[in-house]
């Protein structure tokens, strides 16, 4: 009991520190990097959905982008047709994604490994194509336009001028903190332990009385909620449409999750920062070489793919695993 509450206190402290750090950065960074950091926070939430699903319970999904699209479209429809505020729209998006996760989980609970990977890949293609199918509702190839709007008056009176990118970052921050807090609590709880038991030995877990299918579906639902939240925030940057949630988005999130460490919350944060800032980093590092545009365009994809392969072959636990490892040895 006391152990659990000490975990809870530790999580609370970490969450507060995280918030303070990002808040500090939101004041210090230029608008471009404020925007980039806000995208990294959205990806952080999205990657947490993979940490829960793949890292904790061992199920792979290449379709998290589709669930993000569900969240984005639900919010856009709420805002444009029902006149919801973005906060209610975000709640609606999470609810819609939870529902989609339930359906997906029911179908996916009996699949594993390559079957699950392939099926979720097809889902990642099929869901955004619905937008073009029902053009009048979902806005076709172009999509629907929504945004974070203007910062509220109390914020500007408190902080002075708040730019759009800064507001985007500040509006995303509480959700990232919430996701961080929620994930670390669930992973340290009984529930989290039962997921890991499922991942490590399905047969033993079922012999110990765990209801395998129901647990798998439950993980899918929770994970989808995170993906939906990431999706609506990602869409609020301006547009919700099939081009915003392409299949490459799903693969990018998976890459971030694996690079950072698929079993770790810290890894999720590292991975998110890495995939978002990698292109900037490469541009900065290759500045003196000035490669041709053709090469420069594909350099980030090339490097992140190579890193992905190296990670699974040499250090499948990702960067975070390496960090923990060092810590426990010294």
């Amino acid at each position: 009991m006391s152990k659990a509450s000490s975990y809870g206190r530790k999580n609370l402290v970490i969450s507060i520190l995280f918030t303070a750090l990002v808040f500090f950065l939101s004041i210090k960074l230029d608008p471009y990097n404020q925007g980039q950091l806000s995208v990294a926070l959205m990806f952080f939430i999205g990657i947490l959905s993979i940490v829960l699903l793949t890292g904790a319970s061992g199920q792979i999904s290449l379709g998290q982008g589709a669930l993000m699209a569900v969240g984005g479209f639900a919010a856009a429809l709420g805002i444009l047709n029902l006149g919801l505020s973005i906060w209610f729209a975000i709640a609606l998006a999470v609810f819609a994604a939870l529902l989609a996760g339930l359906l997906l989980g029911i179908a996916a609970a009996r699949l594993s490994g390559p079957y699950l990977a392939g099926t979720t890949l097809v889902i990642a293609l099929a869901i955004p194509s619905l937008a073009t199918r029902f053009e009048s509702v979902f806005g076709g190839d172009v999509g629907l336009t929504i945004d974070f709007g203007n910062p509220p008056a109390w914020l500007t009176s408190l902080m002075g001028e708040v730019g759009y990118e800064q507001w985007q970052l500040l509006a995303t921050l509480p959700f990232a903190t919430l996701a961080l807090f929620f994930t670390s609590n669930i992973l340290n709880s009984r529930t989290g332990r039962s997921w890991r038991a499922l991942r490590d030995n399905e047969v033993a877990a079922s012999l110990a009385g765990m209801k395998i299918s129901e647990t798998k579906i439950f993980v899918f639902v929770i994970s989808s909620g995170f993906a939906g939240l990431a999706g609506v925030l990602y869409g609020l940057r301006g547009i919700v449409g099939p081009s915003v949630y392409p299949i490459s988005l799903s693969l990018l999130l998976l890459t971030g999750a694996v690079l950072g460490g698929i079993r770790s919350i810290l890894g999720a944060l590292i991975g998110a920062l890495l995939v978002v800032f990698l292109p900037d980093l490469i541009e900065w590092a290759s500045g003196s070489f000035s490669p041709s545009e053709q090469i420069a365009n594909y350099l980030p994809a090339m490097i992140s793919s190579i890193l992905l392969i190296l990670t699974v072959v040499l250090n499948p636990g990702g960067i975070a695993h390496g960090l923990h490892h060092k810590k426990s040895h010294h």
Partner: peptide, 12 residues
């Protein structure tokens, strides 16, 4: 799961 992720890296 891991070979699947590796093959996606190769694709990339």
């Amino acid at each position: 799961t891991i070979p699947v992720i590796a093959s996606l890296g190769i694709l990339g």
